[in-house]
Design a protein around this nucleic acid. Sequence first.
DNA 1: ATTGTTTTTGCAAGTTTTTGCTGTTATTGT
DNA 2: ACAATAACAGCAAAAACTTGCAAAAACAAT
Lengths: 249, 249
Amino acid sequence: MLKEERQKYILDQVHLHHRVLLNDLSDSLNVSIDTVRRDVKELDKEKKLKKVHGGATSFGFMTFTKDDGNIYLKSKKISIAEKTVSLLSDGQVILMSGGTTNMEVANLIPKKLVLTVFTPSLHVAMALLEHENVEVIFLGGKLLHEAKFAVGGTVVNALSQLRVDLCILGTGYLDAQFGLTEFDWEVIQVKQAMIRAAKKTIILTVSDKLHSVQKYKTCDMTSVHTLVTELDPSDPLLDAFRPFELVLV
Amino acid sequence: MLKEERQKYILDQVHLHHRVLLNDLSDSLNVSIDTVRRDVKELDKEKKLKKVHGGATSFGFMTFTKDDGNIYLKSKKISIAEKTVSLLSDGQVILMSGGTTNMEVANLIPKKLVLTVFTPSLHVAMALLEHENVEVIFLGGKLLHEAKFAVGGTVVNALSQLRVDLCILGTGYLDAQFGLTEFDWEVIQVKQAMIRAAKKTIILTVSDKLHSVQKYKTCDMTSVHTLVTELDPSDPLLDAFRPFELVLV
DNA sequence: ATTGTTTTTGCAAGTTTTTGCTGTTATTGT
DNA sequence: ACAATAACAGCAAAAACTTGCAAAAACAAT
């Protein structure tokens, strides 16, 4: 085996898994650990990867830590994401909208979970692609500059031809009386199409956004099957939603 | 056996397997290892292949999708991107593929330039969205985990309904004889559809990738209208491409 | 045809690169 | 602090490379 081959393999592995252990490499390449070490050292010198104790990591094309600064809010979102992930099961076909909460969901999906996910959100798609076992299908269309979210007829049309198990909607404004509302008309169109395309709809929202209303309406509470917040399902803040036939998580 | 024959055989082997061992060559050609060594040395000098310890590799072999961090290559790519951007004009509707070179193009687009860009690449789309005046339309479909690139029938179908001014293709492997080649069949399908959907096709490639061949063919040189490299258009390395009716930039 | 020149090829001696092994020193996690 | 693991330096064998050289083949010109 040529040295070049080995080094290419190493780089491929690094790019694929973001990190590799020298031991694993030495194992799968059938060469001594010293040889691998030397290879990695060279590649490091050539700035092709970063050598770390015991292995190597890629430089990471885009280090995706869009820290929204607010640690407090973030921990809430992680709590929501954890609950949401627990609702998923192998083999499901789901829809995911955008937003930071959905980003956390995407990040927290277990490596072994096998899913097919449709999404119109660039960020969510990017995060999902880190998971080997998740098939990601992007719903293409005109992209909104701010939200990095696809909208327009193409998306709605593609959605009209889908029938998936689950739709996970993030970043909404929720109110028991007015239902789910948004401020962007084009996003509304897409979210409505997403709800229509799914058997069940899950809404994720931090308690701060409960009882807030925006200009346009996405849907009534009756279209929602599950509501996930960072609160305990028995929390009094959720009382307003109990009259509806929905699962509180 | 003639020297020419031998060298052609060697090149074929390199193109086919992306690497060869001097020993194997000496074996199958029934000549001494020294002769093979000298042949490979010559071919290396002629930039037809890359000689390495113990054998030789094709130029495409050691090129990586994520070669950022490689300052040397990056400066070449920026040079290419600058030339490419100068070919664009207000109001155009264009197609852009993926790859790091196209990323640089996306980054270098002047803030004031008004464009409509269709792309199946997540990274390129993301970069383009930084430009207020660029309308970005993502060609949705199944995303490849590594390339973050949409492929499949949806993309090809969407492209079949387009007729745009320009198609800018990055990350290809280019050879005067074999044309534009790739190693991923699904990507080929998309790129072919992109070429069909555009009035003109521009190929971007760093000189390292010239004279390198991969498994599958995207198109002949005759489908290419403009070839952009970091080299001066009069550089002898480009001589092989002059017989074709294309613009060298 | 043959003589002289150039190119090509194989061989041999000496050098460099690569690789795995050894023992020693650093680093890490508990 | 201590055990476990990883990194490093030096060494030796094997493989690959370089250089110089001479025989063989190809070519040119008389």
